[in-house]
């Protein structure tokens, strides 16, 4: 497994996060940390609050209570585009690609925040704007090679099969060269072969670029295989946090998955 990589200091820390939607308490006092360069798995039964947790981390939901410390800076509120600019990228449970755009354009859009030439240069498409565009095109082509999606470069993503769309979405997130990558069920709905490919990409990203990854996944075999550490949520509360092996044998976790009633 990944023990060879050296896992660093705390990159992200969430403390006492609570979030509710009207009457529904999605998260209650959740605290955990993500260390630099680790692959953290977030698991839990349906409706446990996993997606909500990612949404809180990248500023899409604002928690009712709690603190988020990212790279040493504590904040309570943040807009998603600010999170993006600070190096947090993510993919969605229900694919959120730009359907009318090609694979290439989708991934290029992931680098939009790194491009700075103003619209006048862009309109002229001369000098700096052109150089900038080509530079980013080169970087995007490296991602396309890495994800082995050369053949669908110019295809509008709306026409791609589900598994490839997931891969393009990962490409778009990677294009931003994130420090923290949040993946919401990257392997949902895939067949075994596609899952193996996706696992390989995730581990390679982690290995080659040192990207910290927090991923939500239902497939236990995958989680046990690729995660360094696992956080378990149930009914919006954290019920376990530790190595895959420790979590697997934890009685609370087994109960949660078997649906043992709560007191």
């Amino acid at each position: 497994m990944n023990n060879a990589r050296d896992i660093g200091d705390v990159l992200l820390k969430v403390e006492d996060i609570s979030l509710s939607f009207g009457g529904v308490q999605a998260l209650t006092d959740v605290t955990f940390e993500v260390r630099a360069r680790e692959v953290l798995g977030i698991i839990g039964p349906n409706g446990a609050g996993k997606s909500s947790m990612l949404n809180v981390i990248n500023g899409f939901y604002h928690p009712d209570k709690g603190r988020i410390t990212y790279k040493g800076t504590t904040r309570t509120k943040m807009r998603p585009h600010e999170a993006a600019r600070q190096g947090i990228a993510r993919t969605f449970q229900n694919i959120a690609l730009f359907k009318g755009m090609s694979t290439l354009d989708n991934i290029m859009t992931g680098r939009n925040t790194m491009m700075h030439r103003n619209f006048l240069w862009q309109a002229l498409y001369l000098g700096p704007a052109r150089t900038e565009e080509l530079e980013h095109r080169r970087a995007v082509e490296r991602i396309i090679d890495f994800l082995e999606i050369e053949a669908i470069r110019k295809t509008p993503v709306g026409r791609l099969p589900y598994g490839l769309q997931k891969r393009v979405e990962l490409g778009r997130a990677l294009a931003a060269e994130p420090e923290l990558l949040l993946l919401d069920e990257p392997m949902a709905g895939m067949n075994l072969e596609e899952k193996e490919d996706m696992c390989r990409f995730i581990l390679d990203v982690n290995d080659e670029f040192g990207t910290t990854i927090a991923l939500i996944e239902h497939d236990m075999a995958v989680v046990m295989d690729i995660c360094d550490r696992v956080v378990v949520l149930d009914y919006g509360r954290k019920i376990a946090d530790g190595s895959p092996d420790a979590v697997r044998t934890n009685q609370d976790v087994i109960d949660a998955y078997l649906g043992v009633s709560h007191d």
């Binding site: 990248n58 899409f60 807009r79 998603p80 585009h81 999170a83 993006a84 600019r85 990228a89 993510r90 969605f92 959120a96 690609l97 730009f98 359907k99 009318g100 755009m101 354009d105 290029m108 859009t109 992931g110 939009n112 925040t113 491009m115 030439r117 619209f119 862009q122 309109a123 002229l124 498409y125 704007a129 565009e133 778009r172 997130a173 931003a176």
Partner: peptide
Amino acid sequence: AKNLVRGRIGRAWMAIRDMDVAAEIIGI
């Protein structure tokens, strides 16, 4: 106009058009 739409700004516009929520999450 053609230059604008094939560059960063055109992509930002189309991203907002196709899915504004996702566009914001990637920093637009």
